[in-house]
C-alpha cells in the first residue's frame, strides 16, 4: 500500500487537522512509522521546491505553507485574529486561558474592572466560547478557550500553556 499517497490525499480533503490515531487505526501503521512517512513526504516536497509541507505534532497533522513564501502570501492571508484587540482584551484572554472554565464575574474580579465587552469581543473572534453554566444562583455562563485558540498558539491542549505557578491561582481563595 502506498501510504504517502493515502496520507497526502486524506490531509488534502480532511476538515481540519487529522489525528494520528486515524492513520494508525485505519491503516495499521505505528505512530513512529507515520512520522517517518511525514518526514519522507516533507523531504520530497522540499526537494521539489513546493511551497507547503505537512505540519505535525504529537497529536495531529495538517498541510501548511512554508516559511519562505510568507511575504508572497500577504494578499491571501486572512485578517489577523488579533486585529484591533486591545491590551485589556489580551489580558482577559490570558485570564480565561489560565483560569478556565471561568465566569465573567471572576474575570472582572481579577482585572478589577467590568469585563463583559472584552469577553464578547474575544467570543466574536472565536478565541473563547461559553462552555457551560456554574451551578450557583443565577447560573452564570462559564467561558473557556476554543480549539481555534489552541491552533493559533500551535498547542494541543491548555495543559501545554506555560506554567504560571500555584501562587497566582490561589490569590482569590485566600480572600
Amino acid at each position: 500500500m502506498n501510504y504517502k499517497k493515502i496520507i497526502t490525499s486524506i490531509l488534502l480533503v480532511s476538515d481540519g487537522p487529522v489525528e494520528h490515531s486515524y492513520f494508525c487505526d485505519n491503516f495499521e501503521i505505528s505512530k513512529e512509522e507515520l512520522f517517518v512517512y511525514f518526514s519522507e513526504i516533507n523531504n520530497n516536497l522540499i526537494e521539489s521546491d513546493f511551497g507547503f509541507k505537512i505540519k505535525y505534532n504529537d497529536k495531529n497533522s495538517d498541510f501548511s505553507t512554508i516559511d519562505d513564501v510568507t511575504k508572497e502570501l500577504i494578499d491571501f492571508k486572512p485578517p489577523s485574529i488579533l486585529r484591533g484587540l486591545s491590551t485589556p482584551a489580551l489580558e482577559t484572554l490570558s485570564i480565561v486561558a489560565y483560569e478556565q472554565p471561568v465566569t465573567k464575574l471572576k474575570v472582572s474580579e481579577i482585572r478589577g474592572v467590568e469585563s463583559e465587552s472584552s469577553l464578547k469581543t474575544l467570543e466574536s473572534r472565536g478565541l473563547i466560547e461559553k462552555s457551560g453554566v456554574l451551578d450557583v444562583p443565577g447560573s452564570p455562563h462559564q467561558y473557556s478557550t476554543t480549539q481555534l485558540f489552541l491552533e493559533k498558539l500551535d498547542i494541543n491542549s491548555i495543559s501545554e500553556l506555560p506554567v504560571l505557578g500555584d501562587y497566582f491561582s490561589n490569590v482569590h481563595e485566600e480572600e
Binding site: S14, P17, T65, D67, T87, L90, S94, R111, K152, L153
Partner: peptide
Amino acid sequence: QFKAFSEIGIALASRIKKNERFLNSFK
C-alpha cells in the same frame, strides 16, 4: 497577578502573531 496576566496576554499575542505567518490549508 495583574502584572502577570498583562504580560502573558502580550506573550500570547506575540506567539499567535508568529504562528499566523504560516497558513494551514483552508478548512
